[in-house]
């Protein structure tokens, strides 16, 4: 083994393309961060860095599911709508029965734990609808998940009459959203985010399950002929993505003590953008959750720097677009150079 290593040092030492892209994007992140620190006062303080990493926990949590689905060569655009639906349902389930003239204050009066369980079940249910159409009926995922995105959002609108539910909630409802590690400002959602990133990292590098996800994305037909049950894997991933959206929805509802039907508008696109920024291939078969995480931080640095520079919020979208373009182009360039 040792002699083997000496003969072919390149084989063992060489980074995989996924790791290479992640390292490359970390380089870009450092660059962007250094620039921002030069021009924006107090940018490189510990507190600000902490905020940069944690403020967008919800997009990152979604990004984990979206990235894994994207690696199979599919999309999940339903996550934003699913957040709204789950949040609204978790409120509706615990609101008291017939407590008010206002219909928006009346719910099912279920215990908190039951309400959360049911809401999560609905979130996974949205994933199950996705899985049924995509894995079983082979409908293109972009179509199906745009459909369920509107289905979930639509249900949330109906339940809240197009607005939100925030009254007659038991005190315990806000508990999850405000929970934090004693003596620190690390809240539960951030913990969820960090544990997911670590778990996903181990999962995608080490497990047979994850390896098969990459195989499906790289060549679905060859995967099938190699004995991989493609439908089973797609189904599992859409259920996971639905579950993660559900968890996000419940945490956000708890934090704001409200179920808002317009919550998380456009988050599905944000999750997709950070995955692409992190080097995940839109054609599938390539990318990593860690890369997505780096992509998220880059976007967060840029947005935050723009605010710091007192750039009008109207410009933020344009700025995001420019950074996304530059980052993705340079990434393609670097990868092509490396492969040539």
């Amino acid at each position: 083994m040792a002699t083997n290593q000496m003969q072919k040092p390149a084989a063992g030492v060489r980074l995989s393309d996924e790791s290479f892209i992640t390292v490359f994007m970390v380089g870009i992140l450092v660059l962007v961060f250094a620039l921002a620190s030069l021009f924006v006062p107090n940018f490189s303080t510990a507190k600000n860095i902490f905020n940069l990493v944690t403020n967008n926990w919800f997009v990152i949590v979604l990004g984990v599911g979206v990235t894994l689905v994207l690696i199979t060569g599919n999309f999940d655009m339903s996550v934003g709508g699913n957040i709204a639906l789950t949040g609204v349902l978790s409120v509706y389930f615990v609101q008291g029965v017939n407590v008010s003239q206002n219909t928006l204050a009346n719910g099912l009066g279920l215990p908190y734990v039951v309400a959360i369980g049911l809401a999560l079940l609905c979130a996974v249910g949205v994933g199950a609808i996705n899985a049924f159409f995509i894995a079983k009926l082979k409908v293109p995922s972009i179509i199906v998940t745009l459909g369920t995105m509107m289905l979930a959002r639509g249900a949330a609108k109906v339940i809240t009459q197009g607005a939100q539910r925030n009254t007659s909630l038991p005190d315990i409802f806000g508990w999850l959203g405000s929970l934090s590690i004693p003596g620190t400002s690390i809240r539960l959602p951030v913990l969820v985010m960090i544990s997911l990133i670590i778990l996903a990292y181990i999962f995608e590098k080490k497990t047979v399950f994850a390896r098969r996800i990459y195989l499906i994305g790289a060549n679905p037909e060859a995967a099938r002929l190699s004995g991989i049950n493609v439908a089973k894997y797609l189904t599992a991933l859409y259920l996971v993505s639905g579950l993660l959206a559900g968890i996000t929805g419940i945490l956000l509802a708890s934090e704001y003590k409200a179920g808002v039907s317009s919550r998380a508008m456009g988050y599905e696109f944000d999750a997709l953008v950070i995955a692409l920024l992190g080097g995940v291939s839109i054609n599938g078969g390539f990318g990593s959750v860690l890369g997505m995480f780096v992509g998220a931080i880059i976007l967060s640095v840029v947005t935050s720097a723009a605010t710091g520079l007192l750039l009008s919020p109207d410009w933020q979208f344009t700025l995001k677009a420019i950074v996304t373009f530059i980052a993705i182009l340079s990434q393609r360039y670097a990868l092509d150079r490396r492969k040539a």
Binding site: L215, A218, N219, A222
Partner: peptide, 13 residues
């Protein structure tokens, strides 16, 4: 190429 091989993966993969 289309049915047997995962062309974007390595030999090891």
């Amino acid at each position: 190429r289309t049915q047997g091989l995962f062309t974007i993966l390595t030999i090891r993969g």
